[in-house]
Amino acid sequence: MRNMLSPSLFVRSALLVCAVAGGLSASAQCRSFAKNKCVPELAPYKFNETFNAAQLAPGEEAEVNLTFYSGQEYRVMVCTHPILGEVNWKLVDENNKIVFESLADEPKKFFDLKAGSTVPMKVVVWVPNKGSSSMVHVGCVAIMVGFKE
């Protein structure tokens, strides 16, 4: 009985509950952020319906494999929560040749393109490390693709 009520046990239980709930909540926040802040910015392109978003921290990387279909026009956009600051991202072909690059010190929000032929490509996003801060800021990064119908 004494053990059940000890403060340390409660604290640990509370932190465990918080960690689990926090993980789910963070994902939900990422969906909410992508839906409310990023999708509208794709206009006039139609959102391609695929959820490519993750919570990233400095030093972490995400990539999306995608195919552009010939004759179609696309907008590729990387949308980042302000807590992370600007991120680096690039669009590369199957040989890893860079077709477009946006670096954190000169960021570009989106890249519009037309596919002359059907090409598989890859979007790579990486969050730059910032100094020796003891805080790790984790924020939502959404990689969005829009197309013209």
Partner: peptide, 16 residues
Amino acid sequence: GCGGEPAAQDQLTVDT
């Protein structure tokens, strides 16, 4: 702090 609907703040800050 952890539950409920997602609030306007869309990030987590983890103190390491």
